[in-house]
């Protein structure tokens, strides 16, 4: 699978097409077992709902969005996506250990920007992604990947609009990356 020999200083990743085939099979397996696709942003939503519910139960109940996800018989953290997202974390850790990529906390960034800039950009990016994922009924894994794979119209729309926007605006944020 080695593309060429001049890749010694590069972190060793698996062949992207192999990764893609595995990921595609995983999507099939997930749907085969559970009847629905993978997801990621749902877990953070559960965390938000839980936090608001614990800190300010009154406002949680009165909020028309949060109250949708509160149920009396179990905590909002006790959902499928939360466990799945914990799995994502541990799976990443497992792979990181196997391939020797786990390090002390550090910030990966373009040499042209400071760590602070990178962290602020990451925070803003996260906020936007969080807001957008709620409108989009899912993020790049739940909507764009699993949605498109199950031929959902919405999934394909999210995929096209998400990557389309990325390409449209990438030039303006060039400095962040290269």
């Amino acid at each position: 699978m080695e593309k060429n020999t001049v890749t010694n200083n590069r972190p060793h990743y698996i062949n992207p097409y192999l990764g893609g085939v595995l990921l595609g099979l995983l999507v099939i397996l997930t749907v085969y077992i559970t009847g629905r696709g993978l997801g990621a942003s749902g877990a953070v939503k559960s965390a938000v709902v839980t936090t608001v519910d614990v800190v300010a139960p009154k406002s949680a109940e009165s909020n028309p969005y949060i109250s949708k996800f509160i149920s009396d018989d179990h905590s909002p953290m006790y959902t499928w996506l939360v466990f799945e997202s914990m799995g994502i974390f541990f799976g990443g850790l497992l792979s990181g250990i196997l391939f020797g990529r786990v390090k002390k906390p550090w910030v990966e960034k373009s040499p042209k920007i400071t760590s602070k800039t990178r962290l602020i950009a990451a925070l803003i990016g996260g906020i936007l992604f969080g807001i957008g994922s709620q409108f989009g009924r899912g993020c790049s894994s739940g909507a764009a990947l699993a949605g498109s794979a199950t031929f959902s119209l919405g999934g394909v729309i999210v995929m096209l609009a998400l990557f389309g926007t990325g390409y449209a605006i990438a030039w303006f944020f060039k400095k962040l990356w290269i």
Binding site: G126, F129, T165
Partner: peptide
């Protein structure tokens, strides 16, 4: 939502 996520993607470089 996807347009907002697109901005978040380019700025943050990650998805959830």
């Amino acid at each position: 939502g996807s347009v907002i996520m697109g901005f978040g993607f380019v700025l943050g470089g990650f998805c959830p």
